[in-house]
Design a protein around this nucleic acid. Structure first.
Lengths: 188, 188, 188, 188
DNA sequence: CATGAATGAGTGTTCATTCAT
DNA sequence: TATGAATGAACACTCATTCAT
């Protein structure tokens, strides 16, 4: 992520530009959807259109980089909860915060969906990072008796993606999450 | 749906063409997403591009017609289950079939999401048709003790949309539905 | 004008339709310019689009028919002044009224321009009707000493078209006509 | 005119292309009328269609640029005559040359008509440039006794537009101008 | 390396014209 | 004969991508 395709490390200013473009893309795509133009991203980033294409040779690669960055941030957050005191609270709290984010950032939902696909495909792609971290939270919550034992990480990812999608559209997320969480808890 | 905007009924051949276009649009948008071109729809329908625009004056109106048609079909199916013997089976079975459909037809998910929004907005739009029919199934399932009492139609719609989305992407639908359904069942 | 291209006289209702279309076209083109659609004309006339094309096989032919009708009306008015008492007043008054009409009806200007071209081309087309009638008014005004002798009908037509155009755009017609008329009067 | 909308000066090659497009547009619109297609302009200019739209974001803006360029050229010519020896000759000669140009370039007439409208609207738009320059020629011609005193610049503009229109259609310009000019001269 | 001008295939949409009903 | 549905070429305009500066 910090070096060009040629393998050579990027110069400091090039790296800075890459970051600026990525940040701009994240915001532009969040607000206008993924159909926003690359030109718009360049404008927001304060660089020329050519610079955008130098760092991300196609629009698709730019899109993917945005999703990857999002997933990495989520994975980092999940990893930070790895040794939280209350394992149930850690799991459900993380789940809730992700869904809340998705309610405003459409890209989050797309990232989750793609992460699920990637993880399934066992390609070792970035999505796996989140799924692995989430898997740890899940396992600890199961050991603590907060989550039923017959749930796997893939199912949690799918549920996360689905709830995030629903949150972005219908807006009924809070209430719905209640039921979804009850479905994950051990039957009394 | 069977008459032009002017109120006059369409000629038999015009009606046939309208249906052909709608069917083609449904398929094209399902496969290629809503960014598929109107030309593609015309080609698939075997009509000229002008014919598509005669029946649906903008691409947006064509898109909406597709969604409306989908929702109407779902609503009709739900209504047909209104007096099924096993109310729980009727409710959960319908839910399952919708999600299964969504796994292959991306448009179904979009229709559900939009239906949720419409219903929320309390407009007399089409989405309400499905939500109302679904509401009946829900109520009967609740009376039969198959679904917990504190769930409303809006929450069910949101859950339906979310699970449909997840089904289309992650593919883990069957297992995930198990948990979601458990969340809807009365706590023992 | 009262028979179809095949030479056979039109049925009464067909004739009525032709007139309706012509009237509608005149109004539509006056308001929206000649780029108005044929469909619009049909709508205004209360007939199907096919009927418009049956009577006027191309849009151009419809346009020309409108111009011809306008010119015929002007020619008729000019002919009515053929034996007016004050020949100068007849000539200048007619000129003034045409320009006033043109200020609101753009088609009048176009008709005059085309009439001028036609007359020049000596094709014996309709434009000549107006030019001939105007020629009579001119001659009588010259005999009465109200217009200088070295002016011909073609020049008057050109001046009429030019002033009509100016009237439609700049709006300064009244004042400008004063000078144009002075230019036509005999030098004292 | 020599810088983009963003205020930054254009690169040399961009400037060259802009000029090529403008020149091509001028010719294409002169020959085929303003309904000529933008593609045609691009083809004539030897650039891609995208280049045309980069410099002139809508067809209307291209059209306006053509008219503005024409008016500026005319205004410059008029200003060059500001201190000519024979003020009457300067005024009438300029008038004559404009009309002669209009006989072949339809766009000239449209430019004049629009200039008249602009000037009337008292906006600081380009049309005023020509009217002002023409006003100087007019005043000097009036002081020299070559033009009657009760004529204003607006009337001259209207007459200029009208005569230009007539010249483009009927072709009788020379003779007609004689009478129009006599109308502007002081009554003996 | 950064820039932004140039490119041109592709899009939604219109409209004169044809022809089956 | 009248109708209006069907047609498809044409249009203005967009945008991802390339490349000379």
């Amino acid at each position: 992520m910090t070096s060009s395709a040629s393998g050579r490390p990027l110069r400091a200013d090039a790296l800075r530009n890459r970051a600026k473009v990525l940040a701009a893309a994240e915001e532009v795509f969040a607000v206008q959807g993924t159909s926003a133009s690359t030109e718009e991203v360049a404008r927001k980033a304060g660089v020329g259109i050519g610079t955008v294409f130098r760092h991300f040779p196609t629009k698709e690669s730019l899109l993917e980089a945005v999703l990857v960055a999002l997933l990495e941030r989520l994975a980092a957050e999940a990893e930070g909860l790895r040794s939280a005191d209350d394992a149930g609270e850690a799991f459900f709290g993380f789940f809730t915060r992700v869904v809340a984010q998705a309610a405003t950032k459409r890209a989050v939902t797309e990232a989750l969906a793609e992460a699920g696909v990637d993880a399934r495909a066992a390609t070792g792609r970035t999505g796996t990072g989140l799924q692995a971290a989430l898997g740890v939270l899940l396992e600890r919550a199961q050991e603590a008796g907060a989550v039923r034992a017959d749930v796997g990480p893939a199912e949690v990812m799918a549920l996360l993606a689905g709830m995030s999608y629903a949150a972005g559209r219908a807006g009924a997320h809070e209430d719905v999450l209640t039921f979804a969480f009850d479905g994950l808890r051990p039957r009394p």
